[in-house]
Each structure stands twice: as C-alpha cells, then as structure tokens.
C-alpha cells in the first residue's frame, strides 16, 4: 500500500517478501554461525538491501516506465523466483524458527492468553504507531506524503522525490522483515508461506481500502476475525471461502474499500 501510494507499485511478491527474511536469519545462523539476535540484525539488513534497495533498482525502476501491468507481471515472476530460490538453495520442508520471547501462557480467569500473541499484538501496534508518527510528525514523513499525493508539485517545492520513494521501499522492507520475524515462530519458516500470506494481505488491503493505511489495518483485522470465527463456530471446511465472499461484496458495492477514498482518473 505504501509502495502503491508513492510509486504506483503493485507488488504481487509481497507474501514472498514476508517469507524471505526468516530464511535470511536461518541462513545467517546456519552458515554464518551468528547468534539469534545478531542473525535478526543481519536478516533485517539483508531485507533492506534485497527487498528494499535492490527490488527498487533492479525490478521497479526499469519496468515502471512501461506501465503498471508489466510491473505486476514482473512481481509475479519475482514471487516465483524467490519461492523456488528458497526451495532450491535452503530447504523444501518447513524449518523451526526461534521465538525472541517467552512461549509461556498467562491465565486470566478461565481464559488462557499466550505471551507470544500479546507480544505480536504489542509490536504490531507499536510499529503502526511509529509509522503514523513518522509519516505525520516528521519533516521526512510529510515530504513522503507530499510525494505520494503529487510528485510533480513535490519536485517543484524542492522535495527529493526519488529519495522519498527509496525511503518508502526501505520502510516496506523493514515492515515485511518485522512481520516475518513475528509470524515465523508460529507458522514455521517455509518457502510456500508467501502464497497464504500474500493472498490474505491482498484481500485485506482491498477490503479495507487500497489507498489508506488505516484501511489496510481494518481490513486485516476484519478478514482475520471473520476467518477465525467462521472456522471456530461454523465450518472449518469453508473458512477460506468466506473472506473471498467478503472481497466480492466489497468490490461490487464499495470498490474503494471500507475506509478507502474513491479515486477518479482521466481515461
């Protein structure tokens, strides 16, 4: 969504972007002999380099000038490349990924709450809060917003548009790395993880509103809650279908998404 707003980039490899940093960490531990905290740092650095800088320079920059569709096809190809690359050069089977926090439970009356889940929620909320603060409360953030809203005018005002777009790619890389480190201890690290994650993220973004960060958050929560309620209280067989029905309903009746802004373009 960040990428779409600043550079009109639709990234169909976003799921694989979440899958890959976990393998950077595992590879740093296995082949580099690094401890887990150092491997996390190495994973983050590699994610910034490969999924931020190199993705922009080698894939987006040369192709975006030919239009959005070639870029979409390129990111689909990139997704296959990343998936098969991990399968070929690391492992085809799932790998255990260490958790950076306690895996114990808290008993709150009759309910049992996992510390792991609490940490994930806390980190996710903190990340969104920091991102919002950065975008709205700092000079660089406001420059990035200006770039997203009107790149030509931003350039006239002296904002380094290219640099702002690069920052967006780096922030995106940092966020996918964070998601990867949070989710892999539960889902296990596997080369196919991106398929599930990418589809869910895409559905959530469209349901919530593709041009609003808060829309993506609401979409993600809604899809997650509906998916789990359906599986727990109705039918686990049809759980995967319900979010897709929601997607169809949103496209039919509110194409801009629940919190999205309608956009008009000259054709």
């Amino acid at each position: 969504m960040l990428l779409w707003q600043t550079s009109q980039t639709i990234n169909f490899a976003q799921g694989e972007f979440v899958m890959l940093p976990a393998f950077f960490v595992l590879a740093a531990m296995k082949f580099g002999g690094l401890s887990f905290p150092l491997a996390i740092l190495a994973g983050l650095a590699l994610a910034l380099l490969v999924l931020g800088l190199l993705f922009k320079r080698l894939v987006v920059d040369p192709i975006i000038r030919h239009g959005v569709l070639p870029l979409v096809i390129s990111t689909v190809a990139l997704a296959i490349f990343l998936k098969e690359g991990v399968k070929e050069f690391y492992a085809a089977d799932a790998q255990a990924f260490p958790a950076a926090w306690a895996t114990t439970n808290l008993a709150l009356g009759p309910a049992v709450v996992s510390v792991q889940n609490l940490v994930i929620i806390a980190v996710a909320v903190a990340a969104v809060g920091l991102l919002q603060y950065f975008l709205g409360g700092t000079r660089t953030g406001r420059q990035m917003q200006a770039t997203a809203q009107n790149p030509a005018l931003a350039r006239i005002l002296g904002i380094p548009v290219e640099r702002m777009i690069l920052y967006t790619f780096l922030i995106n890389a940092a966020l996918v790395a964070l998601a990867s480190f949070l989710i892999s201890p539960i889902y296990l690290a596997k080369f196919t993880n991106g398929e599930t994650l990418g589809l869910v993220a895409f559905v959530a973004a469209i349901v919530g509103g593709f041009n609003q960060v808060r829309g993506a958050i609401v979409g993600g929560l809604l899809v997650g809650v509906i998916d789990n309620f359906v599986a727990a209280y109705w039918s686990s067989q049809y759980r995967a279908a319900i979010p897709l029905f929601l997607l169809i309903a949103v496209i039919l009746f509110r194409p801009q998404g629940l919190l999205g802004r309608a956009e008009e373009r000259t054709v």
């Binding site: 889902y187 789990n228 599986a231």
Partner: peptide, 11 residues
C-alpha cells in the same frame, strides 16, 4: 499446508 490452527484449537 494449513498454517493457522488457532480456530481449530478453539473448537
């Protein structure tokens, strides 16, 4: 290939 078992465990 399912990755999320939260709802299944609830059930």
């Amino acid at each position: 290939g399912q990755v999320d078992f939260a709802a299944d465990v609830v059930k």
